[in-house]
Simulated scan of single mutants.
Amino acid sequence: MTNFFDFAISRLPDAATRCSRPPLGEIDALAQKASFAAALRLLAGSFISLYEGSPEMTALFATRQSRLLCHALVALYFQKRGTCDAETEEPFLTREDFAQLALKHGLASHDVAYAFFRQALERGLTNPSDQSDGERAGGVVPSPLTLAMLAHWYDVHFQALDLVDEGFRACRFIERSETMLAHIHPRVAQALLSNPEVRCPGPLSIIFNWFDAGGLLMDRLIAGIDRENPLEQGRHLTDVKTVSQLAKSLSLSRTHVSRKLAAAELIGGIGWSGRRGRSALWISQGFYEEYARTQARKLLILDDAFMAI
């Protein structure tokens, strides 16, 4: 996996700092609903399943920076498609388009944006444009698999929202996902790219999101919480018994995972119920709440976009 992080993406552009964010009370209200824990398990488990179904491509979603770059790339494609004549023009993206967008949002340097653009093509996130004239040389479009995975990503989030309030967003989305995706994703991506709380998460998220597969590691720990054992001393036991088990499930090296778990352990986010690295791993209530609030912010963003569409 490639870690693209070399840029202070926590430095928001001026325009982004003025964007609205979900009120803290609204986030807390969602996160404290009785059914939210089940919604959280649905999300975490679905993210792991998505990775297992296409590990080569989803490796591009491994860090906070690369996830935002993925959202930005596909949103730019939909925006360009919206300005094209559907009958005579096919939209396409160039690496220059993408680099300018990455710089505009403070996501990456030119070199990092170019590297990500190349990796996206190599890993199947994008395909070469069908057109071969000079203007379109090097142009790309999102692959069919990417669009299918994005539709699934929205479906899972809408299922989570429906689980919380017994709504029908997922059914309505699936009925017209192809049309709706083009309208909703630029709106959602803009909100994700400009929301300070999404881009600048808490200390545990920072530890995990600045290295390869960090987000997936958090998903795996949340999905593995032992629901049979109640919270004790502010700790949630998980079904993870060894570092090797965790590393193997995500195709990572044991050394790599051990190093990052040790960093989280130093600030009290995780720990071992017995011998370090050889017993059930626990996560702190603070870790759980930080993850939960991040997902709640994202769900509110998607819900607002859904209602607007």
Rank of each mutant, 00 (worst) to 15 (best):
G139R: 05
N195V: 11
I207C: 03
L163T: 12
A262S: 14
G134Q: 07
L246E: 03
W210L: 13
L181T: 07
F211W: 02
M180E: 10
A292I: 03
P203G: 01
R199S: 03
D226Q: 08
E135M: 08
H183G: 15
A86D: 03
E289G: 01
S253Y: 03
A62K: 06
I301N: 02
P203R: 00
R187D: 14
L193A: 07
G286R: 06
S205G: 06
T179I: 14
Y288Q: 00
T63G: 10
F47V: 04
A16N: 02
A113E: 01
H110D: 13
T17C: 12
D6V: 11
V164I: 15
E90L: 10
T83M: 14
L43Y: 10
T88Y: 02
V74T: 08
L103P: 04
F78Y: 06
N3R: 02
P22D: 05
A62M: 02
H110S: 15
G139M: 04
S249H: 07
T242A: 08
E87H: 13
F7L: 03
N3F: 02
A16E: 01
A213R: 05
A264F: 01
T63R: 04
S251I: 09
P22H: 01
G224S: 04
L221C: 00
Q190W: 12
D155T: 15
V188Q: 05
A170M: 06
R64L: 13
L252M: 07
R21P: 00
L237E: 02
N229R: 11
L147I: 04
W282T: 04
W272F: 10
V243G: 06
S258D: 10
E232Q: 08
H256C: 11
S132F: 00
S49F: 00
V257K: 06
H71I: 01
C84D: 11
L252N: 04
D133C: 08
H71W: 13
L299N: 03
A213M: 05
C200V: 12
P186K: 06
D130S: 15
S205I: 01
A148L: 10
Q65I: 11
A223Y: 06
F5E: 13
R293W: 03
P91A: 12
T179D: 15
F211R: 06
I48S: 00
R293A: 06
E178G: 11
S20F: 12
R41W: 10
H256D: 14
A280W: 15
M1F: 07
E135T: 09
R95Q: 08
N195T: 11
K298S: 14
L299T: 05
L266K: 15
D133Y: 10
I174G: 00
D239V: 09
T17A: 12
D85N: 08
S35G: 09
F306D: 09
L60M: 05
A44V: 00
G134C: 05
L145A: 15
Q233M: 10
R278F: 15
D85E: 04
K104E: 14
S205C: 08
L60V: 06
L250I: 02
C171S: 14
L43W: 07
R259W: 12
A38K: 09
L193S: 09
Y51F: 14
S251N: 11
V257C: 05
P23N: 07
F117A: 05
P144S: 01
